[in-house]
C-alpha cells in the first residue's frame, strides 16, 4: 500500500494510488473486450466481460486501414459508458496528455496509453501521477513495465501484437516479464543496482519486485488472443486477466466473398449471436484456464465460428509492428 493510512481524511480521499491500482485488482481473472459500438458493449457485458475498451476501430481494422489512429470520438465513448454498468476504458495516444485530460473529464474508468494508436510523442509518455483516473500501459519486458509504473501506470498489460490474431508476441512479452522477475528474486542484493541500470528501471521498483516476486500492479495479457485456448495459455503463463479485441469481433464479422461489410455509420457489421458465443467462450476459458476439460467445452461452444485469419508476423515490415512503439 502506498498511501499512509494516517493521512486519510474521514470525509474521504479520491484518486489515490491505492484506488487506482485497486480497480485493476477487481478486474483480475476477467476478460476486457474491445468494442466499437454501444451494442457491442452490451454483448460484451452479457458475455461476462469485466470491462470494455471503447474505441473507434479495432486494432485489426486500424492495421488494415492505416492513417493516423487517434483517441475515439468522445460522444461514442459517452454512449458506450451509458450502455453498460461495467467499467469503461478508452485509449489515448502515447504522450498525448491532452487526450487523456479529455477522457478524464468525460469520466472514463481507466485510460489505456496505447501503442495501438499512433504515438503523439516519440520520446515521452504521459506523466500519469498527475491524473486521478488510473492508466494501463503496455510492456514488452520488465524494464518497460517498471518505467511505466514509475510514470504512474496502475496496471500493466503485455503489448503482444494487437490486431494480428497471433499470440506469439504476447507469449514473448509475458515470458520476458515473468522470467526477469524470477531472476531478480534469485540474485543477491548487491547486484540490484546493476540490474536496475541494465533494464533501465528505478532501483526502488526493481528492489520491490525482487522482494515480492511480482509487479506492484496487476498484470494482464493483451495483443493477439483469439481463441479460448489462447486465453488459457496466457493465464497459465502468469497473466492475471485477458484483453481481447479483434479476436472476438473479427471472428463474428459479417463478410461477403471474404470482404468485411460495413453499416451506414461505417462500423464493421458483426453477427451479435456469434460475437456473444465467442466472447462467452473466452470468458469461460479464462475462468477455468487450468482445467483442459473446461477449455474443451468452451471451444466446442463456438459452434463452428472460426477464429480470425491472423497474420504471420514474419511477413510484416518493422514499420507495420505496433509493439515497437514507445519504450
Amino acid at each position: 500500500m502506498t498511501d499512509g493510512e494516517r493521512g486519510i481524511p474521514a470525509a474521504g480521499q479520491t484518486g489515490t494510488m491505492t484506488v487506482k491500482r485497486g480497480l485493476a485488482q477487481m478486474l483480475k481473472g476477467g476478460v476486457i473486450m474491445d468494442v466499437v459500438t454501444p451494442e457491442q458493449a452490451a454483448v460484451a457485458q452479457e458475455a461476462g466481460a469485466v470491462a470494455v475498451m471503447a474505441l473507434e476501430r479495432i486494432p485489426a481494422d486500424i492495421r488494415a486501414s492505416g492513417g493516423v489512429a487517434r483517441m475515439s470520438d468522445l460522444s461514442l465513448v459517452q454512449r458506450i459508458m451509458d450502455a453498460v454498468t461495467i467499467p469503461v476504458m478508452a485509449k489515448a495516444r502515447i504522450g498525448h496528455f491532452a487526450e487523456a485530460q479529455c477522457l478524464q473529464a468525460l469520466g472514463v474508468d481507466y485510460i489505456d496509453e496505447s501503442e495501438v494508436l499512433t504515438p503523439a510523442d516519440e520520446k515521452y509518455h504521459i506523466a500519469k501521477h498527475k491524473f486521478s483516473v488510473p492508466f494501463v500501459c503496455g510492456a514488452r519486458d520488465l524494464g518497460e513495465a517498471l518505467r511505466r509504473i514509475a510514470e504512474g501506470a496502475a496496471m500493466i498489460r503485455s503489448k503482444g501484437e494487437a490486431g494480428s490474431g497471433n499470440i506469439v508476441e504476447a507469449v514473448r512479452h509475458m515470458r520476458a516479464i515473468r522470467d526477469t522477475i524470477a531472476e531478480l528474486h534469485a540474485v543477491p542484493e548487491e547486484e540490484l543496482v546493476a540490474r536496475a541500470r541494465d533494464i533501465g528501471a528505478p532501483l526502488e521498483l526493481v528492489a520491490a519486485v525482487a522482494r515480492e516476486k511480482k509487479l506492484p500492479v496487476v498484470l494482464f495479457c493483451a495483443g493477439g488472443v483469439s481463441t479460448p485456448a489462447d486465453a488459457a495459455l496466457m493465464m497459465q503463463l502468469g497473466a492475471e486477466g485477458i484483453f481481447v479485441g479483434s479476436g472476438i469481433f473479427k471472428a463474428a464479422a459479417i463478410t461477403k466473398n471474404g470482404i468485411a461489410e460495413y453499416d451506414e455509420n461505417g462500423f464493421p457489421r458483426v453477427d451479435p449471436e456469434i460475437a456473444l458465443r465467442y466472447a462467452t467462450a473466452i470468458v469461460a476459458a479464462t475462468t477455468h484456464y487450468e482445467d483442459p476439460q473446461a477449455v474443451v467445452a468452451a471451444s466446442k461452444s463456438l459452434g463452428g465460428a472460426r477464429p480470425m485469419h491472423g497474420i504471420d508476423l514474419r511477413s510484416l515490415d518493422q514499420s507495420q509492428l505496433l509493439s515497437v512503439r514507445g519504450n
Binding site: A11, G12, Y110
Partner: peptide, 15 residues
C-alpha cells in the same frame, strides 16, 4: 445501488 458514489473518479479511501 451500484456505483452509488459514482464511477472510478469517485473511488476513495476513508475512515
Amino acid at each position: 445501488r451500484r456505483n452509488a458514489f459514482g464511477r472510478q473518479l469517485a473511488s476513495e479511501e476513508a475512515l
